[in-house]
Simulated scan of single mutants.
Amino acid sequence: MRAFIFPGQGSQKVGMGAELAEASAAAREVFEEVDDALSQKLSAIMREGPDDQLTLTENAQPAIMANAIATLRVLEADFGIALAQHGACVAGHSLGEYSALCAVGAFSLGDTARLLKLRGQAMQAAVPVGEGAMAALLGADIEKAAALASAAAEGEVCDVANDNDPTQVVISGHKGAIERAVALVKDYEIKRGILLPVSAPFHCSLMQPAADRMAEALAATPPGQFSLPVYANVTAARVTDPEEEQHLLVEQVTGRVRWRESVQAMRADGVEQFVELGGKVLGPMVGRIDRDAATVSLITMEEIETFAKEIG
């Protein structure tokens, strides 16, 4: 069994998608459709930058999705590899869950782009710049990270945001609490704490205003039926019901990204290979979660062609 997985924020870089767009009409069509949906030349920012524009949350989120879906469309249109035929399920990391849902037909490409643009804007607006922060805890498991976050909070918000793999957990909350946590890492036998260059504290309770905005947006544009099950971030469980998924996408804004548990759940359900589309972040994480899992990350035309030959 095979899972197709979709990367989250941080996987963006200037030049993303340029090679695919040059080589494939299917990829070009994705980028053009996203540009039209947003009334914005996002593809130009992806191709040429500047970097500070691409890393803006409201641009990064739809850009990462567009690149992943372009990779999928090349696989489908140019090499005849249909997702529903060759995959058993899908999953995505944070915003990648929207990419996954687009890939299996729950949202149109245009709606996915608009939802992610709004999600990025809402997340940025939820907490004034400078009041929130996030930090990666390296060499930390979930138990150590949770204990550290609890100790560092001191009445402020300090939540576990991402349980990525057995060696990396991300915390999020008030800037003061996150800085205290970083200073305390050695006391909790954690190798290192690194403040992340993010503009807002994602996946913590401070994001509630953004969750409220996404609840309204998803009520107006709810997910439809999808062709493969999705493993949801906040439950790390298999979902097939669009109404359930709609509620989980709202919870996801403030909730923990349970990626380690999601991968373990997919493995327990029989997934043997994980195929990352449009990034090279999740594949290595999967390898750290389960060394016996096969992984492949697809970005270039050469990588896509090699993969298509292997499974075609």
Rank of each mutant, 00 (worst) to 15 (best):
R2C: 11
R2E: 06
F6Y: 12
V14I: 08
G17Y: 11
A18L: 14
L20R: 02
E29W: 13
V30N: 10
F31D: 04
V34T: 04
A37Q: 01
L38N: 05
K41H: 14
S43D: 00
A44H: 14
M46F: 10
P50R: 13
D52P: 04
D52V: 10
Q53S: 14
A66S: 12
A68D: 06
A70C: 07
L72H: 11
F79T: 01
V90Y: 08
H93F: 12
S94Q: 08
Y98A: 09
A100I: 06
G105F: 13
L109D: 09
R119E: 10
G120Q: 02
A122M: 03
M123W: 06
V127E: 12
P128S: 07
E131Y: 11
D141H: 03
I142F: 10
K144H: 11
A149R: 00
A151Y: 02
T167G: 14
T167L: 13
H174W: 00
V182L: 01
A183H: 01
L184G: 06
Y188Q: 00
S199A: 12
S199R: 03
H203F: 06
S205P: 10
P209I: 08
D212R: 14
A217G: 05
P222A: 12
S227Q: 14
P229N: 08
E243I: 14
E244T: 15
V250W: 05
T254N: 07
G255N: 07
V257C: 02
W259A: 01
E261W: 09
S262G: 13
S262H: 00
F274L: 10
V275M: 13
G278W: 10
L282Y: 07
L282Q: 07
V296M: 05
E303H: 02
I304K: 03
